[in-house]
Amino acid sequence: MHDVIPQGATDAPPKARGRAIVVTSGKGGVGKTTTTANVGAALAASGAAVVLVDADVGLRNLDIVMGLEARVRHHVLDVLEGLASVDEALVSDKRVPSLKLLAAAQTREKDDVDTAAFRDLIGTLRDRFDYVLIDCPAGIEMGFANAIVAADEAIVVCTPEVSAVRDADRVVGLLGDGRKVQLIVNRVRPEMVRKGKMLSVDDVNAILRLPLLGVIADAPDVIISTNKGEPVALDAASPVGSTYRAIAERISGTRSDEPELPREKSFFEKLFGGR
């Protein structure tokens, strides 16, 4: 193996290896990147050392959702190819000091990623962080294979749509039996579910049969927060933010209750624009 990762990059005492969790879905546009950003932010806000790795080489977006795009100097391929050290490439989040980002390369292609080198990089990061969250590209090609190779856990993000469930089902099959796979159902509209106009979480999970980490409402908060580049998970007043924080607690094991379904807005909340 070529020496892509400088040794001695860590000055922290040796500790238990962190968990490498890939966030994946198969279908594009269901909220993988938003989920990665918010789950990562919530985990870091609870005190864990978290690094978010954007594996979507060629279509990098995690830095945008995190609001860190202006501070990216090096990307994951620079590190894999020995052009930058891990420390040079990691971007610190000023809002949550224990949260770091390793951005994807924007002008390169997914096939440029050396699978073995990427696996080694994730291994190095696991020695330094409690959580390594890998934002997987859409699809099930090379980029997907690279993103899942070093992860021993997966979060499948699925929306209540036939196409998303079908793709998620395919991805669950590809992830195999060797990984802990959990589910986040994203963009649920409780009112539509009640009226029978949207698949319910139970409908989705009757197919996927995965442990449920949480259910995210299709709420304006999420769109507004991505507009601003501020993860909604860090917004103490946002109900969606609190759902992300509950998901983080289920991941870390400090919470084991059944995930709550998003509730409908009351009449007065609608009237006064409450969220």
Binding site: V162, G196, M198, L199
Partner: peptide, 18 residues
């Protein structure tokens, strides 16, 4: 019949053939 019923049935069939 609500559209979610249609979605469920379509999903069932498509996964079946998958």
């Amino acid at each position: 019949e609500p559209s979610s019923v249609t979605a469920r049935e379509r999903l069932r069939l498509v996964l079946l053939s998958d």
